[in-house]
């Protein structure tokens, strides 16, 4: 699935966490590409490994307790092989990250201007005065009214939406070609969420950056993404363009997920519930279709022994063969 001219190329990435001398993969054999000027959404429920994927790309894991295998190529540079010094050159400068909880991502004891200037002084050769100028520009760019005043303030003096804007300002301060946004609007109200998403979209159009948008909100995906990868239990189970995924979902997990959203006109009907629970990292079956235990009415022979991604139509990939025979429990199976 390698594409020419891609910004970031992830090949067979595994991230394992150590639990008592054994490593358990939270991200399991994930391959992805991110192109310039593209928003790639990664969707999944909590515990599916989507945030671990993000932190692995950023190299935020402690080497003693994690095992990372596979390749993450950025400009012919394999990020998994980098040491800490080189990684620091990449972080912020080439890959910016937007965190979910802006209050814990900001230093409560630093003024806003100093927090933004931190990465500028690390990565650029701007003078103090130039840095100050750039900070004000950035605050203005992310739509903060009265940047001069806000620059002198501390994080606790700002509202949640404003803090998230500051985080975005830090992430884009060095104009990185790649931005990873990990649940950027989950902690925010809908109206603020709409503003932040608009802002992200505008920034992306201006800078032509590639954005990896990690979220559990399918509405946000439908509004923002160009391409979508659905993750379940550490694996990508389906990957397609956003139009294709919402109009023609194939994998049972994607279909179940879409079906459990409260619908416009079906107040009388019960919501669809996916049976069972997501297995914990330790108890995850490592062979066979991982979604099989949650659709027990589908016969075992419909699943593949070692499920692989199949290209069902151009650029639409689905894992395992069970999608061909899948039907919801209350529907009649096709013969």
């Amino acid at each position: 699935m390698s594409a020419k001219g891609s910004l970031l190329e992830i090949n067979n990435l595994n991230t394992g966490f150590r639990i008592k001398d054994e490593y358990y993969n939270a991200v399991d054999n994930v391959s992805l590409t991110l192109a310039k000027n593209e928003i790639l959404a990664i969707v999944g429920e909590s515990g599916c490994g989507k945030s671990t994927l993000a932190t692995t790309i950023m190299g935020l894991h402690n080497a003693q307790n994690t095992r990372i295998e596979g390749e993450i190529f950025y400009k012919d540079l394999d990020l998994t092989k980098l040491n800490e010094v080189l990684y620091n050159k990449i972080r912020g400068n080439d890959i910016g990250m937007i965190f979910q909880d802006p209050l814990s991502a900001l230093n409560p004891l630093m003024r806003i201007e100093d927090q933004i200037a931190e990465s500028l002084s690390y990565h650029t050769s701007l003078t103090k005065a130039q840095q100050e100028q750039r900070v004000l520009e950035l605050l203005d760019q992310v739509g903060i009214p009265n940047p001069k005043r806000v620059a002198k303030q501390y994080p606790h003096e700002l509202s949640g939406g404003m803090r998230q804007r500051v985080i975005i300002a830090i992430a884009i301060s060095c104009k990185p070609p790649i931005i990873i946004a990990d649940e950027p609007t989950t902690a925010l109200d809908v109206t603020i969420q709409a503003q932040i998403l608009d802002l992200l979209k505008n920034l992306q159009e201006e800078t032509e950056a590639g954005i990896i948008l990690i979220t559990h909100d399918l509405g946000v995906v439908a509004e923002m993404a160009d391409r979508v990868a659905v993750m379940y239990a550490g694996q990508i189970v389906e990957q397609a363009t956003v139009e294709e995924l919402f109009t023609n979902p194939q994998h049972p997990y994607t279909r179940s997920l879409l079906n459990s959203i409260p619908r416009e006109d079906e107040f009388e009907q019960e919501l669809h519930v996916i049976e069972g629970t997501v297995p914990s990292l330790k108890n995850l079956p490592r062979t066979g279709c991982r979604f099989a235990p949650r659709i027990p009415w589908i016969a075992a022979e419909e699943h593949e022994e070692n499920p692989e991604l199949h290209e069902v139509s151009p650029d639409h990939w689905v894992r395992c063969t069970c999608y061909k025979h899948f039907h919801f429990r209350d529907e009649e199976g096709e013969a």
Partner: peptide, 26 residues
């Protein structure tokens, strides 16, 4: 009206229009 227009909609085909209405209402 503003609150309702701010909800992300699962309607990929009309997302441009939706964004415009949202901005107009805002």
């Amino acid at each position: 009206k503003r609150l309702l227009s701010a909800i992300p909609k699962i309607d990929v085909a009309h997302r441009k229009e939706h964004m415009e209405t949202r901005r107009k209402v805002d």
